[in-house]
């Protein structure tokens, strides 16, 4: 699998996700600077976490207009899988590839800790390594992770089974107490209609190696390799 990681000024998880991708694929991903106008021929595009453009104006708002994003959107619409993690999720909503928006956390605090996620579906290239309904532990690190969309959009996301992960308690219940940031309907990540674009606030690359204290993020990268060779 050939993966490409897009690097923006202020990205800070680009190298972390590159390590996870290399561990899974055995080959280094291409690191693509945001000023490029095309992404090289690739099986997977990753928009990494960080603080592109210092979160000026709104998280992801500036980077969504970087030259490379035109080609990312084109390739995503043509079916190339895209994984947006944290600030990458901001970028996916700001560029219109995913609906909704990520607002300031309800607590107004930056939250950096492990959370529990319930896997909503496992029939995508991203999630086949998990069981449906499985509870996994993945870290979050964000100030703006409060998923918001209007009721109609939320109903559509749920009706079309486009929610990927939800914040939950250890027994898999979707409680308010288990929701770290105020996200509507405990949404932590969503897919596009085709299931080929995934945006999520938690960082699977931060728990994808036993040396980091956990491996619940690893099945995502392994599943992508399995699906995309």
């Amino acid at each position: 699998m050939k993966a490409s990681v897009i690097v923006f000024p202020g990205s800070n998880c680009d190298r972390d996700v590159a390590v996870s991708l290399e561990a899974a694929t055995g080959r280094e991903p291409a690191m693509v600077w945001h000023r490029e106008t095309t992404v090289p021929d690739t099986d997977l595009i990753v928009l990494p976490g960080g603080f592109s453009y210092g979160d000026y104006l709104r998280s992801g708002a500036m980077a969504a207009h970087s030259p490379v994003m035109k080609d990312v959107v084109r390739k995503a619409n043509a079916g190339t899988p895209v994984l947006g993690i944290c600030n990458g999720f901001h970028l996916l909503t700001e560029s219109g590839l995913l609906p909704g928006v990520l607002m300031r956390n309800a607590s107004l605090k930056f939250i950096c800790r492990d959370v529990l996620l319930k896997v909503a579906r496992n029939d995508t290239d991203f999630a086949r390594g998990y069981d449906e309904g499985q509870v996994i532990r993945i870290p979050i690190a964000h100030h703006d992770g409060n998923y918001y969309a209007d009721t109609e959009t939320l109903d559509r996301l749920e009706g079309e089974n486009l929610v990927a992960f939800r914040y939950c308690d250890p027994s898999g219940e979707l409680t308010d107490a288990a929701n770290p940031n105020g996200s509507q309907r405990n949404i932590a990540g969503i897919y596009n209609a085709a299931g080929t674009v995934l945006g999520l606030m938690p960082h699977p690359e931060r728990l994808a190696d036993a040396a980091l204290g956990g491996t619940d993020g690893k099945p995502m990268f392994d599943a992508l390799v399995e699906a995309l060779h």
Binding site: R58, M62, G100, M103, A149, D150
Partner: peptide
């Protein structure tokens, strides 16, 4: 429309 406001919210 393009940058300054996110018209979703």
């Amino acid at each position: 429309e393009q940058l300054l406001a996110n018209t979703v919210i």
